[in-house]
Design a protein around this nucleic acid. Structure first.
Lengths: 216, 216
DNA sequence: ACCTGAACACCGTTCAAGT
DNA sequence: ACCTGAACACCGTTCAAGT
């Protein structure tokens, strides 16, 4: 007589892909600070310790997530000018932060020294070189553009949830009375203005690079 | 007969100032992630719980630190042009991150909705207004400049210690072989070039704002 | 008023054991 | 090979108690 079939409640075996999917879901649902190996295990129907068979640490899971998201970024068509290609990549990079606002801080602050990150850096540096820059100009311009996009990603998303706001904020009424300029400017700090504001700085920086338009 | 004097080992009573001093010392010594209320208590020679008599939570201690550091930022002389005043404030803000690199992530990501923060925002917005901008232009330009400075602060300091680098970095030799442009650019990513790189973007953004020079 | 100690509900990770 | 359960060394914070 054959053995009884395994109970139907027996779940799929774990793998890196499923763990990453679940991690991103937990982070976007509960926030990055509340993300723990134990909670991730519960989400997957296993013990937290089972994860260590697929990743050496919690940080490795988050890094795998970064690599996956970086790998999704587009390679802009070569027909575009260098400045246009840089614009496309900057906007796609920023868009990732808006798609995963809770994960954004890890995404933005992570160094691009993984394979996917280095591939992107190479691609970006090529844009500057194609625009006529030498190595030094390209490296510094890349850094400048990176500072700007990274700061925007963090500033635009931190309001969404993860609690980096002051613990003892000044009450809104007091702001209106004592900080008139801030109070009036507040309207333009809202999400409705994010795209236009980002474009303002992005355009200024790209123009300042003086990249030669590539013949199409 | 009078009571015996209190033993000389009895320490100073706690106060907010001493707690903040110790917190900053612990953070810069051990890193922001390793900063805990228990460790702060040990540094001060008291139980972790004693801190709660002076601050309602650990986050409040860190916020008090932000407020103190923001309060140290200079108010540039009115004789300077609006663009020059903005430059002075941007550099002073960035300099704080370099003075306290471990604390920099909290400093940079914290919203300026405390009294000290709002005072600074008011001062910055006044520069844009003095340069001829209306409320909308001033608000958006402030945001743009903030993105840039914030990103630079984080990017320049994260290498110093708190471990936001990839957990599985590509080995240096492999970078040299497979990512030639990145490898060559690496020289210009070093701290020796931080000031010049930051100036590149700062100058570009300030010029793009088209602020009128104020007669001196 | 100021501080303590035990306790609660969590963490990430190690280790020996199970199947 | 893959997963588990107990355990270790931590967290932030609550609470009742001490002086």
């Amino acid at each position: 007589m054959p053995k009884a079939p395994i109970p139907p409640t027996r779940r799929e075996p774990l793998n890196a892909q499923r763990i990453c999917d679940a991690a991103l879901a937990v982070i976007e649902r509960d926030g990055l600070d509340a993300f723990s190996t134990r909670k991730l295990g519960a989400e997957l129907g296993c013990e937290a310790m089972s994860l260590y068979h697929h990743f050496p640490s919690k940080a490795h899971v988050l890094d795998a997530l970064v690599d996956r998201l970086l790998g999704e970024l587009p390679d802009p068509p070569a027909a575009l000018s260098p400045a246009q290609r840089l614009r496309v990549m900057a906007l796609a990079w920023r868009a990732l932060a808006h798609r995963y606002p809770q994960f954004a801080p890890w995404l933005a602050l992570h160094r691009w020294n993984s394979a996917a990150g280095l591939t992107l850096l190479e691609r970006l540096l090529t844009c500057f070189a194609d625009g006529g820059m030498n190595t030094e100009q390209a490296a510094k311009s890349l850094r400048v553009l990176g500072y700007y996009v990274m700061g925007a990603m963090l500033d635009e998303t931190r309001g969404y949830g993860s609690g980096a706001s002051a613990v003892s904020p000044v009450a809104d009424e007091a702001v209106g009375q004592k900080f008139v300029a801030v109070s009036q400017a507040g309207e333009y700090f809202r999400p409705a203005h994010f795209d236009a504001t980002f474009e303002l700085g992005l355009g200024a920086l790209l123009r300042s690079f003086g990249l030669e338009a590539k013949a199409v």
